[in-house]
Nucleic acid binder design. Structure first.
Lengths: 188, 188
DNA sequence: GCTATCCTATGACGAGTGTTATAGCCAAGG
DNA sequence: CCTTGGCTATAACACTCGTCATAGGATAGC
């Protein structure tokens, strides 16, 4: 079944966002996914690297899909959905889970590591979605890029702060400030 | 010598900001610091937990000192020094190093993990320094807290984005936007 | 029924982990 | 001189890690 394969990807994504890639072992991913260890290298001949890269891509694409959908109602709605999404991840896991893309980005890795490449693409994709929406609402193109980076960076950083502080204050405060900022620079 | 002790703390901080705490082994910290493994448990009877907590505190206090000093010239100067600091960490390590406080915040840990507690305090301390400076320059107290959280969160997130993308664009763009924002809300 | 193909089960490999114990060095203090 | 105490060296403990090989089972097509 290619069903076990998907279980492994989803399980790996869930573990990476809790513990990071380095601390996520294939054995535990297999157990956590109800999938035999022996099958891991059947589905992912590239081993841990391949599984990790696919897990990050899976998580990133999920977020991209949600963000793109919500942005159709405008940049502020997209922004708020983005923050609400991360807020749910945090509160739904008792402050144990965060962003797998961020987790992969902060571990030492050869510069050609596929998972890090996927992470970079994810950040770029999220920023691009936001920037495009801002442009469509009258924001200067160059400034739209800057603001989009600010939103993504602030959300990612706030998630980490919330995990350490065991409060959603950082996320809530950042969301409030950015909502005000984006509302002010967009028309309607 | 208590000198070896300090070497271990500094070495651990340097390794944690590159690989994260989980992937940082005591053996490598000892080697990297030119200190014998046997001494580690002499200086840090609490083992890895104690060493990691102290390393994070050491790094966090260093940043706090720099931030406090630069903030004396005003919030915008402090903000810019904060971003310049992280930019130097990234470019000076060929995108290999990041923020040890962030690294520790992102790994699964018991909620009473001392290193995570120290990380939470670091985020709070940095935010408090910024918020106080904003208040002294005419910003409404509640809003000062929000803006301070935004600055810290955005900087931390941008550092991670830069590492993944192997560009300082995110940091530069975020710094530019926040400089404009803080300049606009402060008097003078 | 038979066979070929996909998947699983099991165990092993070498390496690396945190940690502890024991024995040794080597400089001060008497 | 000799002893005491802080520091170091070495080896061992009981893991876990990624990875691979090999053997077993199921399941589909004929």
């Amino acid at each position: 079944m290619t069903d076990s394969r998907q279980q492994l990807v989803a399980g790996a994504a869930d573990m990476i966002r809790r513990r990071g890639r380095g601390a996520t072992s294939i054995r535990e991913v297999a157990k956590h996914s109800g999938t035999p260890l022996g099958s891991t290298y059947h589905y992912f001949p590239g081993g841990k690297h391949e599984l990790a890269a696919e897990a990050v891509r899976y998580a990133a694409d999920t977020v991209s899909g949600i963000l793109a959908a919500k942005l159709r109602a405008g940049p502020v709605d997209g922004l708020q959905a983005f923050f609400a999404l991360w807020r749910n991840v945090i509160t739904g896991s008792d402050f144990q889970a965060g962003c797998p893309v961020l987790a992969v980005s902060i571990e030492e890795a050869p510069s050609d590591d596929p998972a890090v490449t996927v992470a970079a693409e994810a950040f770029t994709a999220w920023s691009a979605l936001l920037a495009e929406s801002l442009r469509q609402h009258g924001v200067d193109p160059a400034r739209a890029d800057h603001l989009a980076s600010l939103v993504v960076a602030a959300a990612e950083g706030a998630v980490a702060m919330c995990r350490a502080q065991r409060t959603t204050d950082a996320l809530d405060h950042v969301a409030a400030e950015l909502t005000a900022l984006i509302s002010a620079v967009t028309d309607r």
